[in-house]
Amino acid sequence: MSFHVYILRCADGSYYTGHTDNLDRRIAEHQSGIFAGYTQDRRPVELMFSESFQTRLEALDRERQIKDWSRKKKEALFREDWASIANAARSRPRVSTSLDARSNPTESPVSQPPVIVLVRPQLGENIGKAARAMLNFGLAEMRLVSPRDGWPNPDAGPAASGADIVLADAKVYESVADAVADCAHVYATTVRKRGVTKPVVTPEEAARAIHGEPGRSAILFGPERSGLETDDVAVARTILTVPINPEFGSLNLAQAVILVAYEWSKGQALASPPATDLDPPAPQGDLDGMIGQLEAMLDGAGYFFPPDRVPATRRTLRTMLTKPAWTAQEVRTMRGVLSALAKPRPR
């Protein structure tokens, strides 16, 4: 397997640097907007540079190096102007990406979407449901550590309900350490600390930190039956947990993933259901006409009885009918119903 470092030019003229093990797929994700983050609102993008490496760690080191370069130096790289790159290296001291961002407003360090790592998952259906939860909220990279029933699993697809891209690109690892080797920030989801003393955050706090931190983040989820083991939690730097009913603290795998993914998605430009304007309320005269029609029919049917209760009954009826704020169409529909009741059609 090869790993690639790439630079994209965005529609606003800024540059985005990343790494991947599938360059064509990753570029397509950037172009489609499914790859949430910096490029999502800066499409279309254009591939300006790519370089291949044998290991992910080599690619990650190169990515960090290039991210620290000035805009001028990156453009020299596109032209393969090695002399200018060498001169820039001699004349400009290496500084952090955050300092680059202040000196070059067109490019700033942007966190990448977190990787979801399922540790020893047991059922294919649960892997599929977790994939569905991920894609609902803009996450597409799943890693599996020693899935019990192997991978791929035929039961995962139907449960994913169309989140096939997540399952197709899922990677399998033998250990938690291997799965998160390229990640700078690792969170372990658990309702218990399991004897490990680490910072503890909520999904909201974790999402805020992930959005503010450069580099990859990974979020670990344990097997369905028992959750993460102490050794799994020990790999992480932070524990992620949720306030939960102490009398019933069991979340299934997909529920746990969706809680975390939803909090992360709040910082993304995901689509919301379109707002639909309601029809305006009917004019008061139309509403009075409908109520009058109903009262006349009820009077003819002998509903208003006894006589001393008629005013109160009429007020109750009017109050009930004016509560919903009927639209003009609803009033017309109801009057049609009343007219049909007054003069039923022969069958």
Score class of each variant (00 low, 15 high):
344 P>K: 06
69 W>V: 10
31 Q>V: 01
89 A>H: 14
56 R>G: 13
308 D>E: 14
295 E>P: 05
240 L>M: 15
217 S>F: 02
266 K>M: 05
190 T>W: 00
188 A>L: 01
29 E>P: 03
40 Q>E: 15
291 I>Q: 15
72 K>N: 09
42 R>I: 11
112 Q>G: 13
86 A>I: 08
320 M>T: 15
342 A>M: 06
18 G>S: 08
42 R>D: 06
75 E>M: 12
162 G>E: 05
325 A>Y: 12
114 P>M: 07
74 K>N: 06
285 G>W: 03
308 D>L: 11
1 M>R: 03
70 S>E: 08
76 A>C: 14
309 R>W: 01
188 A>K: 00
253 L>P: 07
314 R>M: 09
230 T>A: 01
107 E>H: 02
341 L>Y: 00
272 S>T: 11
62 R>N: 01
298 L>P: 02
137 F>I: 14
93 P>I: 11
53 F>V: 09
128 G>S: 07
332 R>I: 00
178 D>G: 14
199 P>R: 05
318 R>P: 11
184 A>I: 01
123 L>N: 03
132 R>K: 10
44 P>R: 13
212 G>N: 03
178 D>R: 07
35 F>I: 01
137 F>W: 15
39 T>C: 13
67 K>L: 12
139 L>R: 10
34 I>T: 12
186 V>P: 04
133 A>E: 09
173 Y>I: 10
20 T>E: 09
172 V>W: 06
76 A>N: 12
229 E>S: 14
14 S>N: 12
342 A>D: 13
95 V>R: 15
13 G>I: 06
329 Q>H: 08
145 V>G: 03
202 T>A: 10
305 F>L: 10
271 A>C: 04
302 G>V: 11
278 L>H: 08
96 S>R: 14
216 R>K: 14
92 R>C: 10
346 P>D: 07
224 E>S: 07
60 L>M: 13
142 M>P: 07
272 S>V: 10
62 R>M: 02
222 G>F: 03
204 E>Y: 05
294 L>Y: 14
165 I>E: 09
329 Q>M: 06
267 G>A: 02
296 A>I: 04
226 S>I: 00
134 M>T: 14
158 P>G: 10
5 V>Q: 08
70 S>L: 10
215 G>I: 03
90 R>M: 15
157 G>C: 08
111 S>W: 13
160 A>H: 03
267 G>I: 03
201 V>H: 12
216 R>W: 13
74 K>D: 04
195 G>A: 02
133 A>G: 13
206 A>W: 06
146 S>Q: 12
344 P>Q: 09
47 L>Q: 09
246 P>C: 04
318 R>D: 12
224 E>V: 04
207 A>P: 04
119 V>G: 01
77 L>Y: 13
234 A>G: 00
271 A>F: 04
